[in-house]
Amino acid sequence: MRPSTAPTLRQQRLGAELRKLREQAGLSSTSAAALLGLNQARVSSIESGRYAVSAERVRAFARGYDCADEPLVEALCAMTGGRTRGWWDEYREYLPAALADLAELEHHAVALRVSLVIHIPALLQTADHARALFREVAPPLLPYEMEHRLSHRIKRQGVLYGEAPVPYTALIHEAALRMGFGGPEVSRAQLQHLIDMGERDNITVQVTPFGSGFAGTGQSVDYISGSVPQLDTVQLDTHHGCEFLDARAQLAKYASVLDRIQEAALSPAASRDFIHRLVQEI
């Protein structure tokens, strides 16, 4: 396999998981290289995601590391080989790499759960609402940059449709519903879109109203479930862009935070009625 000069987040994650298996086996990279018939530099390149690895090689690593977790091994094998280009790769030249990586993670996810306080979840935004948000970006986006971001966001929403739409749970604070980005017409259409999307079998929309209590710091959290729990990822929105977390303790922490937020939220039916009342107020 050829080395990759700019590995994607998914490729880096595969390498990181292979490194974890090696460390759990108590092997240094030098010892692992000798065991597997490779040189130490090749093992390091694979673990950093800079060198593509085949499914056969992953299985050989797993045998050498005495890993008996077959579901994990098969999930890692599915991440190997020549990477098939997805629609998100078209945007790597125009947008921050993290946005393309996020779209790829969502594409391979088996479930998504998000919590937001100030904004409507990206996958549930109308085009007009998203455009209004992008007008607030600092420094201001150029017209072509705005169009790239808008089309990327709309294409990301494709995971909610099709023959096998991903299960999606959106925990939205009342503050986000009342922000009013884009003016009354845009806001009304956005809230109605939330109601409509919440009717889909794979989508759950729950509102956390003022006064109900709230867990966490109010930070936007996106929990992306992989094909096995070890491949879950948390994505946080920050002022400097996306931050991705995958350490076991971090995953457990944010899963617990989301559980507490969901417990404090209204039921899906009560949330639908709540949003409907807001539509009537606009």
Results as ranks from 00 to 15, higher is better:
residue 162 G to L: 06
residue 163 E to N: 11
residue 163 E to D: 15
residue 164 A to D: 09
residue 164 A to M: 05
residue 165 P to M: 13
residue 165 P to W: 07
residue 165 P to A: 12
residue 166 V to F: 05
residue 166 V to L: 10
residue 167 P to E: 14
residue 167 P to F: 10
residue 168 Y to H: 13
residue 168 Y to Q: 08
residue 169 T to P: 02
residue 169 T to C: 13
residue 169 T to G: 04
residue 172 I to R: 05
residue 173 H to T: 08
residue 173 H to D: 15
residue 173 H to R: 08
residue 174 E to R: 01
residue 174 E to I: 01
residue 176 A to Y: 10
residue 176 A to T: 12
residue 176 A to N: 11
residue 177 L to A: 13
residue 177 L to R: 05
residue 179 M to A: 14
residue 179 M to V: 10
residue 179 M to P: 00
residue 179 M to F: 09
residue 180 G to M: 07
residue 180 G to P: 10
residue 180 G to I: 09
residue 181 F to M: 09
residue 182 G to P: 03
residue 182 G to W: 03
residue 182 G to A: 06
residue 183 G to D: 11
residue 184 P to Y: 11
residue 185 E to L: 08
residue 187 S to K: 02
residue 187 S to F: 03
residue 187 S to P: 01
residue 187 S to H: 11
residue 189 A to K: 12
residue 189 A to V: 13
residue 189 A to Q: 13
residue 189 A to C: 06
residue 190 Q to P: 02
residue 190 Q to K: 08
residue 190 Q to L: 03
residue 191 L to K: 08
residue 191 L to T: 03
residue 191 L to M: 14
residue 191 L to E: 01
residue 191 L to F: 06
residue 192 Q to K: 15
residue 192 Q to I: 11
residue 195 I to S: 07
residue 196 D to C: 05
residue 196 D to N: 14
residue 196 D to S: 14
residue 197 M to W: 07
residue 197 M to V: 03
residue 197 M to S: 14
residue 197 M to N: 05
residue 198 G to T: 04
residue 198 G to P: 05
residue 199 E to N: 12
residue 199 E to W: 01
residue 199 E to S: 14
residue 200 R to Q: 09
residue 201 D to V: 02
residue 201 D to M: 01
residue 202 N to G: 07
residue 202 N to I: 07
residue 203 I to A: 01
residue 203 I to H: 01
residue 204 T to G: 00
residue 204 T to S: 12
residue 204 T to P: 00
residue 205 V to Y: 00
residue 206 Q to R: 15
residue 207 V to A: 07
residue 208 T to D: 04
residue 209 P to F: 07
residue 209 P to Q: 06
residue 209 P to E: 08
